[in-house]
């Protein structure tokens, strides 16, 4: 399996509401990320636009439906369509989530949680091998937000991700908001999580907003909160210069607002690493 060279820069998710901005102006980003499934179609305007944007800048294909944790294996039609899209777009890389979405009979279209067991690790690694062989390239997998853990868990999420990456050669997409959300929801230390991730396997960082509550929910519909910014600064201190982007999928503001938010990521990335305390508590603090 080939390797993925590090790529530094700052990007945004390409969403329909900003198509014209990207087609008609030079948006100051280093890459865009698209939801793969939106373009795994036979033809028409979405593919035409994606190809036009691709002619301007690198594109990352980020999927939500591979269902890498499905015990019944991967969907061959899905893989074939993703392979066609990847060959057509020549993306920086192809990514998906550490989760499952479907059984043989039904598809939830949601990122459902996996138990972190040796059995699940075997299933996930077997599926990743299958996907990477089919696509002819290594993939990135993203840590999910989750709303429950399982009594049968045998390892932490970061131990699972580390073992998965070691066994399959896949890379990691670290969603800092998801670490923040899951740390709150499950009571683990975000600092322990960052320390436990194999830094040399991380090729991308996601930043996003969430909805607060007794259980925090990863909704991608709000500004990145201060606690996540702090955790991002720490992650940069550990991971170094990693491609970073802001994900917004709902309540999408005009592009200039997202670019302003992305500037904050740039500023944090070039500034000194924070020296303040743990960032795994539920209280949001003002970034230094």
């Amino acid at each position: 399996m080939s390797t993925i060279a590090p790529f530094s820069g700052f990007g945004l998710g390409l969403r329909r509401t900003h198509y014209q901005d990207f087609l008609e102006s030079d948006v100051p980003v280093d890459f865009v990320e698209v939801i793969s499934e939106n373009y795994m179609v036979d033809g028409g305007n979405p593919l035409r636009i994606l190809e036009e944007v691709r002619a301007k800048m690198p594109v990352i294909l980020h999927g939500v439906s591979m269902s890498i944790g499905s015990a019944n294996g991967l969907d061959s039609e899905y893989l074939a369509r993703l392979e066609m899209l990847a060959n057509r777009i020549d993306p920086l890389w192809v990514s998906d989530h550490l989760c499952w979405t479907r059984t043989s009979a039904h598809n939830s279209h949601d990122l459902l949680p996996l138990p972190y067991t040796r059995e699940a690790l075997d299933v996930v690694c077997s599926n990743i091998d299958h996907a990477q062989e089919t696509l002819g390239r290594p993939m990135l997998f993203e840590n999910p937000s989750s709303y429950m853990t399982f009594p049968e868990d045998e390892m932490t999420e970061w131990e699972f991700l580390s073992a998965m990456s070691l066994r399959t050669g896949c890379y990691l997409l670290l969603d800092v908001n998801n670490i923040y959300v899951s740390a709150h929801n499950h009571g683990f230390s975000a600092d322990d999580y960052l320390a436990g991730i194999p830094a040399d396997r991380v090729r991308q960082i996601h930043l996003a907003g969430h909805t607060d509550g007794d259980i925090k929910i990863d909704t991608h519909d709000a500004l990145v909160c201060d606690g996540v910014w702090q955790l991002y600064a720490k992650a940069r201190g550990i991971l170094g210069d990693v491609a970073t982007m802001i994900e917004r999928d709902d309540g999408i503001p005009p592009l200039p607002e997202l670019l302003t938010e992305l500037d904050r990521a740039r500023a944090l990335a070039t500034g000194p690493s924070p020296t303040d305390g743990p960032t795994d508590g539920p209280t949001e603090r003002i970034a230094a």
């Binding site: 015990a71 499952w100 479907r102 059984t103 949601d110 299933v123």
Partner: peptide, 15 residues
């Protein structure tokens, strides 16, 4: 017992 059975069960609860 198995991951597959757990996923069937989880999906049934979601639906």
């Amino acid at each position: 017992n198995s991951l597959g059975e757990r996923q069937q069960e989880f999906m049934a609860q979601v639906l």
